Amino acid sequence: MEQKPWYLIDDVAHLDSPALVIYPDRVRENIRLLIESIDDVARLRPHVKTNKSREATRLMLEAGIRKFKCATIAEAEMLALCGATDVLLAYQPNVAKMHRLLTLMQEYPDVRFACLVDNLATAQQLSDQAVNADLVVAVYIDLNVGMNRTGIVPTDAVRILYAELATLPGIRPVGFHAYDGHLRNADFSLRTADCDAAFRPVQELSDALVAEGFEPPVIVVGGSPTFPIHAKRQGVDCSPGTFIYWDKGYQTGLPEQPFLTAGLVITRVISLPDSTKVCVDLGHKSVAAEGELTQRVMFLNAPELKAIGQSEEHLVLEAGEGHSYQIGDVLYGLPNHICPTVALYERAYTVENGSITGEWLTIARDRKISV
């Protein structure tokens, strides 16, 4: 007997579209694969920007992962709500965010919060606010290893900044953060060489600080593309995020990684504009609209369909003459980039054994939960 495709939902008629659906069994398998791929679970610091939900976070906690990374105050608060005890806000806070971070520290005193800085002026502001709140904030220096969006290039200036941070009463420098998301060469051997070259000055800075008498800096490195490389590197924390749901982009671009696609968008044919085209309810508001139009989503049960137009609530697809699609047909879409797609939905529906079993609220898509 032919096996039913893993993604089909038996009671899909009860699911309005567009909808985000998550397959928890595949999420659990991805967490297992992640832990299996590193020598020590304590070296994992997954980024929660992909899932933004308490339920996915709790599955990681149940599996023994204790450290996390996030991009927003809301994500940091969600982690604290879930019982995480070590949270790195991988972002340099402005004054307003500093106030919110310090409030979180006061409300969750058992959580070890930290954030990024890349200059002395910001660090001084943070120190001043922390002193007023009778707190000390752990900080990582954000290193620019080629991403060229934030951070400081790993030169001697970093060593000088680290020493200056150590003199501020409300600041405690603990390490480096180096995100190398620009390294995506499809040839894994070349990606490895690029990654090693980008990491070398980070290690040299760490060694220099130890030689000056500092405690060995904690080094938080990488994302999904370089995770398997850093996982084999001793003494660093690794921060993949997309692994938990995976997506078409990484499935294609990172074939050496075994993670399963676990998040889809459900859409329906809502109109047949002419003899060759179909229109579905998957607009800009329902799937990440970055990148080239034809690469935003691939339909698992209709891979031949090609996107030719998209607006806020509609996606027009070329099906060709003689196609058999009808209004009401359900399509299962695999997003090219799952992280911003998840952020478009206030909730995801869980699917287990072919049935809709519940909802995971995307609680951290909001800019504010309570703090």
Rank of each mutant, 00 (worst) to 15 (best):
H337V: 14
L101S: 09
V330W: 08
F227E: 08
A231V: 01
E304W: 12
E75W: 03
P255M: 00
C238V: 10
V145L: 06
I152F: 05
A74R: 03
K277I: 07
L104S: 05
L81H: 14
Y325A: 01
A307G: 00
A166G: 05
E359P: 01
Y23P: 04
L209N: 01
C279Y: 05
C339M: 15
G253H: 12
S189L: 13
P18G: 03
Q203A: 14
C195K: 11
M78K: 08
K232R: 13
W6T: 06
D110Q: 10
P201N: 04
L190A: 13
V221L: 02
L61D: 01
G213M: 01
V41S: 11
T155W: 05
H337S: 14
L293T: 06
M78S: 06
A289W: 08
L104D: 09
A163S: 09
A163W: 07
K306G: 12
G175S: 02
S271F: 11
L315W: 02
I9W: 09
H47M: 03
N336T: 14
R45D: 04
S206W: 05
R159C: 13
F243R: 01
T294V: 14
Q106N: 11
R28E: 09
Y7E: 09
L209T: 04
Q251N: 10
Q125S: 14
H182F: 11
L88W: 06
E352R: 12
T103C: 13
L282M: 07
L344A: 11
E107V: 06
Q234R: 13
A198S: 08
L102K: 00
G358E: 10
Y250L: 14
G322E: 10
V12D: 07
A193D: 15
N301L: 01
G83V: 04
G64M: 07
M147F: 14
Y108F: 14
V220S: 14
A178F: 05
I160G: 08
D180T: 11
A157W: 10
D156S: 14
A231I: 02
H323R: 03
A364M: 02
D207L: 08
G83E: 07
R66H: 14
P46A: 03
M98H: 10
C82S: 12
I160T: 15
G181M: 01
L81M: 15
A262G: 13
Y7K: 09
G146L: 06
N119R: 05
Y345E: 09
P46K: 08
Y23K: 02
V351G: 01
R112C: 15
A130I: 05
H47G: 04
R159S: 15
A138I: 01
I338W: 11
T252S: 13
